[in-house]
């Protein structure tokens, strides 16, 4: 039933509509929240991901040349000026794309990733970050432009040339969702490189320049030194985290009378706000539609 636009709407009926819609939302939330292993919403999630993932990839690729420009926008007039500037620069950059410093940057990034691959000895599928989760959603996740067709599975380690980025949460055909180690939900087994002591690295949900991670050490008598490097401890069969990937550097140590264990503040090595090229650690011999770095048998 469609009423003529502009006719007075009775609040009674719009309240009914509101009630029905809210009920629908609550139903979806209950269905999704109460599921243990596989949620009934998952097929829907996969469908939306299959459609919107490639759209994000395409958009991300299109705006990549603009990355080098100033990042934060604060006032309306500067936003407008910047938009004009961006449009102009975009046109220029498109023309110069083949020869600009961007290609050199990318080559340097790829070199870095290759170096990491050589150092760690893991087979890595390269991917680019194409979508960022908003802080309004209170979870720190990104979309990468590689999915099952590139040999990526859930619970694989994601790293960059600097260090550990996170783990794969969910995979679609052409995209995957990565949970950053800075997310408040993320817990990584960590090891102090100097003393081999074990602990857990937890995110604080803050990805900004001053975002930090917390390290809880299992042994309360160990005092980590400032400047100690924290690396991943590794899980069985390398899922979700492989061993020996650097996570961050200890910046401060404190203990509370209430807790027996010491806590350390870790500065992550990766700049989560400027992620671009990342690598996903895959098992040896994975078949992928793109080159697998570091695999012995790759051509």
């Amino acid at each position: 039933m469609r009423r003529r636009p502009g006719s007075p709407r009775r609040p009674q009926s719009s309240r009914t509509v509101l009630g029905l819609l809210v009920l629908a939302c609550v139903t979806v939330m209950v269905l999704d929240a109460n599921a243990d292993e596989s949620s009934p919403v998952d097929p829907l999630r996969a469908g939306v991901g299959a459609v919107l993932g490639p759209v994000e990839s395409a958009t991300g690729t299109a705006v990549r040349p603009l990355r080098e420009l100033p990042e934060s926008v604060r006032t309306q007039s500067s936003l407008r000026a910047e938009l004009r500037e961006l449009e102009r620069t975009n046109a220029v950059l498109r023309q110069e794309l083949a020869t600009t410093a961007l290609d050199r940057n990318r080559a340097a990034e790829l070199d870095g990733l290759l170096q990491t691959v050589e150092d760690t000895g893991y087979a890595v599928v390269p991917a680019r970050v194409v979508g960022y989760g908003a802080a309004q959603s209170f979870s720190r996740t990104v979309t990468i432009d590689a999915g099952t067709t590139s040999g990526i599975q859930a619970d694989q380690t994601v790293l960059s040339d600097a260090g550990l980025v996170g783990r794969v949460l969910r995979v679609d055909r052409r995209t995957a969702t990565v949970l950053l180690v800075a997310d408040a939900d993320s817990v990584v087994g960590g090891r102090l490189a100097s003393s081999m002591e074990l602990g857990f690295v937890r995110g604080r949900g803050d990805v900004g320049g001053r975002g930090r991670l917390d390290l809880d050490l299992a042994d309360g008598s160990v005092v980590p030194g400032r400047g100690d490097v924290v690396v991943t401890w590794g899980s069985r069969a390398g899922a979700p985290y492989v061993a020996g990937i650097p996570i961050g550097i200890v910046r401060a140590v404190y203990s509370t009378p209430r807790d027996l264990a010491k806590r350390a503040v870790v500065e992550p090595l990766v700049d989560f706000t400027a992620l671009d090229l990342v690598g996903v650690v895959v098992p040896e011999g994975t078949t992928s539609d793109r080159a697998v770095l570091g695999a012995e048998d790759s051509p």
Binding site: G49, G133, F138, T177
Partner: peptide
């Protein structure tokens, strides 16, 4: 759509409820 599109990772329906 916002709840389900990558890289969202929260219980589906939360943005839907807010936006309704």
């Amino acid at each position: 759509a916002l709840d389900l599109a990558p890289p969202a990772d929260h219980v589906a329906g939360r943005w839907a409820l807010a936006l309704v």
